[in-house]
Simulated assay, not measured.
Amino acid sequence: MKIKKGDEVIVIAGKDKGAIGKVIHADPRRQRVTVEGVNLIKKHTKADPQGKGGGVITREAPLHVSNVALVEDGKPVRVGYKFKEDGTKVRISRRTGKEI
């Protein structure tokens, strides 16, 4: 998966199209990412016996990775890979060729 935790991304499809946020969780096995402040859902919670009251909480739901793109200078960019001289693999921007 080319998007990792901490990356700045833009939503390119869905109800939150155009929203920009930071990836707070990436799940490569399910191909999903959770973006801060995007794809908010309301979750109804039941009160537990220890005194915590139930209620409705708002939280982020995961998005499929194909619906987000990395942001560079406010624009979405595609990601590629490149090997440095020392053999390390780095992500690069397809738009500018810069290292991400």
Rank of each mutant, 00 (worst) to 15 (best):
G14E: 10
P62S: 09
I57Y: 08
A47M: 10
A19I: 05
V11T: 10
L40Q: 08
G55H: 07
T58C: 02
V33A: 01
V77P: 01
G51R: 11
V33L: 04
G74V: 13
A61Y: 10
L70E: 14
K98H: 11
R29N: 08
T96L: 04
H44Q: 14
I100M: 15
G37R: 13
L63D: 02
I12A: 00
T58D: 02
D86F: 03
D7W: 05
R29K: 14
E72G: 09
A19D: 09
G51A: 10
V71L: 07
K17F: 04
Y81V: 12
I92M: 03
N67H: 10
G54A: 11
A69R: 11
A69S: 08
P62C: 09
K46V: 15
R91G: 03
V9I: 04
V77W: 07
V77L: 05
G21H: 03
G21A: 05
L70S: 11
V90A: 06
T34W: 08
A26G: 07
K5M: 14
T58N: 02
A13E: 01
K75V: 12
V90S: 05
E60A: 15
A69H: 02
V56D: 10
H64D: 15
R29Q: 09
K2S: 10
L40E: 04
E36H: 10
G37W: 04
I24C: 01
E99T: 14
T45H: 05
G54R: 12
L40H: 01
P76T: 05
R30S: 11
K82M: 13
H64V: 14
K89H: 00
H44I: 15
E8C: 01
A13Q: 04
